[in-house]
Design a protein around this nucleic acid. Structure first.
Length: 429
RNA sequence: GCCCAGGUAGUGUAGCGGCCUAUCAUGUCGGCCUGUCACGCCGACGACUCGGAUUCGAAUUCCGACCUGGGCGCCA
């Protein structure tokens, strides 16, 4: 069995390692090979006069990024990286790499994102790139741990659905035997149905699909959503939950991802609680003042307004008290002012991260809201039925996992936060 | 979908009517080299996205297609 490279120290006597050929420096009588595995890099030093013939033979056939297995003695050498090097007795090429490489793994020459995504498997061999996904994994684990500790039940809901249930966004049609189906844009309706099932606290982390032809650094056609729904909770309570979750995730990443963060040369700053709660009406005012645009009540925030707001706030913040007219039909209108609803968006200074609301749990009011949005209640029957048999009051939100990682790590493009992103033009790999 | 910018060796770039038999770096191959750590030095290899047009002459200008980046729009 090969040992992880990071476990080899100057005190080690022998080592057997397996990994990729990171770099080869041939000085003539001496050749230095840097071998990389997921834990680190070690130098393997071959002396032309002293090395066994099979080692020299393997060395002569060696290409960068080939997979090798090497066994030998470990020497403590101050001049070597990490203060140690391996003098090989066995040098086996397990899997040769062709050349030229489609991408420079050593990063002497930069590559464009498009080139990197075409050869993502090679791109991911770069620690700086791998770091993003090690951290993303830690984020997901932290989310799961946080919610599980609070009694949330993890659910999995269909991604193949019968109808464009929410309206608004365009859906991808798929052939479903003799029927037409769609890829789901959100687990919204299903997680609400689970409230009627009496589960009280559910979450789902899964893909959502949007067939929008957007072409930006913060939109994808396939994204990962962290969705939560809580019975007997109102909008304020699930906002607190969301705020605590964000803090917990940041703290966990800061504490457990030191190496990946250092590869990214990132000082992670944990946001402070509480996040400011900004009323929609005030947000419109600020955006109008800062941009000079004639924004008025009922408008949505465009990219320029969103950026101006972020600059003004400078930290994570909530926009609350949205107009009922521009939020989905399931958002609960306020009793004292039905023009406003109990919906909120969680914003990072760069972009929206999450949106949620207290939901309407009264059947007739829900039907009314669906109709007032110009939608047909008939196609929502599977969703509406549970509201007639004891639906508790509930609230919830959906948080964009890709955007969470992107903003946390200050990535320029959301595609960098997704291993195999799906956008308007990219379907492969 | 609209607007802007762009497409040159495997990768990243320079060149923007004749000086291009196309620059530089990295890479690959060959040679020299026993302590490199972006090893160094010498030599070689390797590219103008495609199709039309203008011109004596096009990588360079124009038109179209395809592709890419960015901004905007759209976006439960």
């Amino acid at each position: 069995m090969a040992s992880p490279i990071s476990t080899i120290t100057p005190e080690s006597e022998r080592a057997e390692i397996a990994g990729w050929v990171h770099e080869v420096r041939d000085l003539g009588g001496l050749t230095f090979c840097l071998i990389r595995d997921r834990t680190g890099i070690v130098q393997v030093t071959v002396n032309r006069k002293k090395a066994p013939a099979p080692v020299l033979e393997a060395l002569s056939r060696l290409s960068r990024e080939s997979v090798v297995r090497i066994g030998g003695t470990v020497k403590a050498i101050a001049k070597a990286p990490g203060g140690r090097e391996i003098v090989p007795e066995r040098f086996e090429i397990l899997s040769p790499a062709e050349s030229p490489l489609p991408l420079d793994v050593v990063e002497k020459v930069p590559a464009e994102l498009d080139t990197r995504l075409d050869s993502r498997f090679l791109d991911l061999r770069r620690p700086r790139v791998a770091a993003v996904f090690l951290i993303r994994s830690a984020v997901m684990a932290a989310v799961w741990e946080f919610l599980a500790a609070r009694g949330f039940v993890n659910i999995t809901t269909p991604k193949l659905v019968a109808a464009a249930t929410e309206g608004g966004t365009d859906l991808f049609p798929v052939a479903y035997f003799e029927k037409e189906a769609f890829l789901n844009q959100s687990p919204q309706l299903y997680k609400q149905i689970m409230m009627a099932a009496g589960f009280e606290r559910v979450f789902e982390i899964g893909p959502i699909f949007r067939a929008e032809e957007h072409n930006t650094t913060k939109h994808l056609n396939e994204a990962t959503s962290i969705d939560v729904e809580v019975s007997f909770a109102d909008d304020r309570e699930v906002m607190d939950l969301l705020e605590d979750l964000i803090l917990f995730v940041y703290e966990r990443v800061a504490a457990t991802c030191r190496d990946p963060l250092s590869w990214l040369e990132l000082q992670l700053e944990v946001p402070k609680k509480p996040f400011p709660r900004l009323a929609y009406r005030d947000a419109i005012g600020i955006a109008a003042r800062r941009t000079g645009e004639p924004l008025k009540f009922g408008d949505d925030f465009g990219a320029v307004a969103e950026k101006a707001l972020g600059e003004e706030m400078g930290v994570h913040y909530f926009i609350v008290d949205w107009p009922t007219a521009i939020k989905p039909y399931y958002a609960m209108p306020r009793e004292d002012d039905p023009e406003l609803c109990r919906a909120f968006d969680l914003m990072h200074p760069r972009m929206e991260l999450a949106s949620g609301s207290q939901r309407i749990h009264q059947h007739d009011l829900l039907v009314h809201q669906i109709r007032s949005k110009g939608l047909s209640a008939d196609s929502f029957e599977f969703y509406l039925r549970p509201f007639r048999y004891g639906m508790p009051p509930h609230a919830g939100w959906g948080l964009g996992a890709d955007r969470l990682v992107m903003t946390m790590l200050d990535l320029a493009n959301i595609r960098e936060a997704v291993i195999f992103p799906r956008d308007r033009h990219r379907l492969v790999p």
